[in-house]
């Protein structure tokens, strides 16, 4: 597992009770190309208050270059920023 801190653009959906779920993310790859990844499945969602900063962490399955990968996405509630925190290679 590699730890990253990659800021990403995201499309997410809020359901009627206010739960947020990531749908699609866009990031820059190693070749400086923008790639779009669909979130195939959200495996877990954890609320975290580490360092007193409220965030949600999502374990997600995505397809990247034809391979299935597991990533941990983080949504910072206060700053509204999405980040890839960890990537299982």
């Amino acid at each position: 597992m590699q730890t990253h801190n990659i800021p990403v653009e995201a499309i997410s959906v809020c359901n009627t009770i206010g739960d947020i779920r990531p749908m699609r993310i866009r990031l820059e790859d190693d070749k400086h190309q923008l790639i779009v990844l669909n979130v195939d499945q959200v495996i877990y969602c954890k609320e975290s208050n580490l360092s007193g900063i409220l965030s949600y962490r999502y374990g997600c399955k995505v397809h990247m270059y034809g391979k299935e990968k597991l990533i941990e996405l983080m949504y910072n509630v206060q700053s509204h920023k999405w980040t890839i925190l960890k990537m299982l290679t």
């Binding site: 801190n5 580490l50 360092s51 900063i53 965030s55 983080m74 910072n76």
Partner: peptide
Amino acid sequence: SWEACYRIHMLGES
């Protein structure tokens, strides 16, 4: 501690 904790958990530093 707060700084270390932020760097590890929010910035993904090892």
